[in-house]
Amino acid sequence: MVGEQRVDSIHYSLLTIRLKWIMDTFGIGLSIVLVSVGALGYYAFVFLPAQFHRWRCQSLRAFAKAIELRTQGRYGDTDLLVRLALTVSARLGIEGEERKRLELAAYLRDIGMVAIPYALLNKPTPLSPMEQLTLARHVEIGAAIVEQIPGLSAVAPLVRLHHVEYAVQPDAPLSAHLLAALSDLMEIAHHAGYGAALSALQTGAGTRYHPQVVQAIEAALQAHPLENWAPLRRSAALWVGLVLYPLKDLTRLLVELTRY
């Protein structure tokens, strides 16, 4: 915590120094223009795309929620899984577009379960091998559904691989292995608790799960034990969003005006 605050303050003082340098070199008039151009560029090319991604994830939460209600939560809390996936992906070096894809796939991974019979999904007794095969079809069905949605077709391969086994397909993308391990973690944790789930991952490392992924999950859970995961710290993002929110309405107003 203390470290983060210090980094923040260093960052801010650097910003003021830079601002002062701009003012000294270009004069007040031009530097106001330059800074506002910079702010606008940040808004359009950094803030808005990030917000767009948030929007998309939020809209996908509806699908995840529907599946969660249909399966009575036995495949785990999707919101928690997404947060875990984001934390662990940082440790695995999954970044940029791949990280975004991972997040979207985490929401959509079980969408194929809409096509699996309700009785099978909610069967209180263990499934027979035949029934397990039927259940496993949700992977293919889900990938087929996601492929149909324009703009999400890039996510379909991850959905298809979200129960991939390390021994079968070791060359699958790291994010797919991560998704597979986390899906099982959440599922086992729902039945038997987090301790049992983690030890199941550890025994499966190298055969069922990617060893590197298991290691990263372990490290992440050691740093923040799952039982007391606090809500995400969003204060900074919230403040930036609140300050810039009127700009969104300005854009909207312009569009409204030009429509007539």
Binding site: L30, V33, L34, S36, V37, L40, G41, Y43, A44, F45, L48, P49, F52, W55, R56, S59, A62, I149, P150, G151, T251, R252, V255
Partner: peptide, 27 residues
């Protein structure tokens, strides 16, 4: 050049705004 930069930013905002609407209907 100073006019062109905000123009580009505005254009990007327009594009994203349109895509947001598409996303809404798509959902």
């Amino acid at each position: 050049l100073a006019v062109l930069a905000p123009y580009l930013a505005l254009r990007q905002a327009f594009i994203l705004y349109t895509r947001q609407h598409e996303l809404y209907h798509q959902t």
